[in-house]
Each structure stands twice: as C-alpha cells, then as structure tokens.
Design a binder for these strands. Structure first.
Lengths: 146, 146
DNA sequence: CAATAAATAATCGTGCGCGATATAAATAGG
DNA sequence: CCTATTTATATCGCGCACGATTATTTATTG
C-alpha cells in the first residue's frame, strides 16, 4: 500500500512550505513599514497580548528555541521596541518587556491582520475553518515527532 | 469593520508558519538518513520527476530564487547527487542532472511520503482536500502580492 | 553591425531556525 | 553544607531564503 508518490503536487508538506513563503511575501511590505520581520512581529504580537514574558515562555508559544529567540530579542531591543531584563527572583530567567515605543507600535500594526485576511480572498468563517484544520495538522505532526 | 485582531491563535498565517516547522521536525530524521535537507529533498523529487532542469525552471516549480538555489545545488553536487552543467545551446543556462547515485537515492526515499502521511493522522481523501485548500490559499496570496 | 536591452546565474549581506554545546543559576541529595 | 543534577539562556556552526547587485550571455534595435 505505497499510495503516496514522490511528487511535489499533491504533497501537503510542499503546499505548506510554499504557502509559508507566499504569506511572507504578503507580509513583507507591511512589516517593512514597521521595521519588523515576520518572526519579530510574532514576538511583538505575543507581547501586546501579554507583556513581560520569559524567553522560554515565548518559545513555547511560538514553537521556537532559545537559539532562535535570543538573537531575535536582541535585535528587537536594539530597535528600541523591547527591553530584556534578568528576573530578580531567578537570575537564569530573562524577561522581555515592551518599551514605550513598542507599545505605540501596536497601533501602526493594527491594520495588518485585515490586510492579510483580504489577501487570502476568503471570508472570516472560511479562514477560521481552514486555520483550525491546519492547527490540527500541526498538533498531529508535533505528536508524531518524537 | 476591524474584525481581525493582533493575536496568534486564530491567525491562519501563524498556523501555517508553525505547521511548516512541525512538518520539518517530522521530515528531519527521515532525511538525515539520506543526507538531505528538506529543500534539497524537494529539488531531488523534482529531478526524479523530470531530470535535467534549469536553475530557473526549478525556481519556478519550487518558488525559490537563484540566490537560494545556486548554493543549494552546489551542495547537492558536492554530495554527489547531481551534476551542474552549462547548456551548450545557451551558455547563460545551468542544467541540473541526476548522477547515478542521485538516481539510486530515489529508492531510499520512496517510503518517505507514506511516513509523512501516517504522521498527519489523516486519510488520503482528507489530505488531498486539505492540500487543495492550502494550494488555493497560496495562489490567492501570490496573486495579491505585487 | 554596433549599441542597447533583456535574460540567466551567481555573489553578497542579513535574518531566521535548529542541533549541539556552554555557562550560570537554582535545586536536590547525601 | 557541599556536591550533583536540573533548568534557563546564550553561543556557535550550518543551511536556507530573500533582496540587491553583478557578470555573462543572448536578443533586440536603430
């Protein structure tokens, strides 16, 4: 029962891979205006939802390692959007907090989700349904990976 | 009508972004056994379907730039899986061809699509339907991007 | 047919993204 | 307490991935 062939078309993984690139191309001009990359934008969104998160906490939410986040957070700090402070309670922990400029940036970013939604050409219900399916796929893959 | 908020959950882009990472984690051990990365695997799959493709042709299929493909193809060549030759007809063009070892590698890779399909926990029909939706999303995004 | 434009790869710089490893702090055990 | 282990972040090396630029070849045009 070797049903699945070595092909690009018909491969859900290739579809996700290329959809991710396509998505980045849509975000790029919008994020350039804010001086952010997409992963940096994700960190900012996470901090706008809940300020003062640890590196590990952000990593769990965004599925990223400290080896990715540490330099990224340093760049956000250099850009003036966040501060990075060691926790007083536990000196191992680093906490990322929004700066005033980082807080102000939220308003400039507010229009982005609608721009992206428009670019997909789908209505809210269709997007929500598809998003739920992709999240379910992600969860299945994450469970399967040892 | 500012319906869409700055949140991670509910964002189809974040879902795709993280699903791509999850997918990579599943592929990694399978591809490590072949000495390939996922983008390298995509090039090999493309060449197994049609040997002797130009850099530009591969770029169109895989949605990648020459600045990504050139070094990647050089690594595949260094690994002994392909050769890179200038076209005799048009000296601007570089053609990637499978080596004997590259041809043999296809058999070792044959089981991978089934492994991945199993990891998704979905049946063939469900995967095909979801893949079609993600491809449609990709096309919509690519059209929207100027 | 020579000057110009277009096409094709390649190069360079920047920023992910991860695995492996290191460093330092906190906790556990004897 | 004092050592051993665990935890949290940081560092390093490698491979994408892209935009901007360059080099070379081919096609076009006056």
């Amino acid at each position: 029962m070797n049903d699945y062939q070595l092909k690009l078309d018909g491969s859900i993984c290739f579809a996700i891979y290329t959809a991710g690139h396509a998505m980045n191309r849509v975000y790029k001009p919008l994020l350039d205006a804010l001086g952010l990359t997409y992963p940096q934008y994700l960190v900012m969104v996470s901090l706008w939802q809940e300020d003062g998160q640890t590196v590990g906490g952000l990593g769990e939410k965004l599925f990223l390692e400290s080896s990715t986040l540490t330099p990224l957070l340093k760049r956000l700090e250099a850009a003036g959007y966040i501060r990075r402070d060691r926790s007083k309670v536990d000196e191992r922990v680093v906490i990322a907090r929004l700066s005033d400029e980082g807080i102000r940036l939220k308003e400039k970013a507010a229009a982005i989700p609608n721009c992206i939604a428009n670019a997909t050409g789908r209505d809210a219900a269709g997007l929500a349904r598809l998003e739920a399916e992709i999240v379910a796929l992600r969860e299945a893959l994450n469970k399967s990976a040892v």
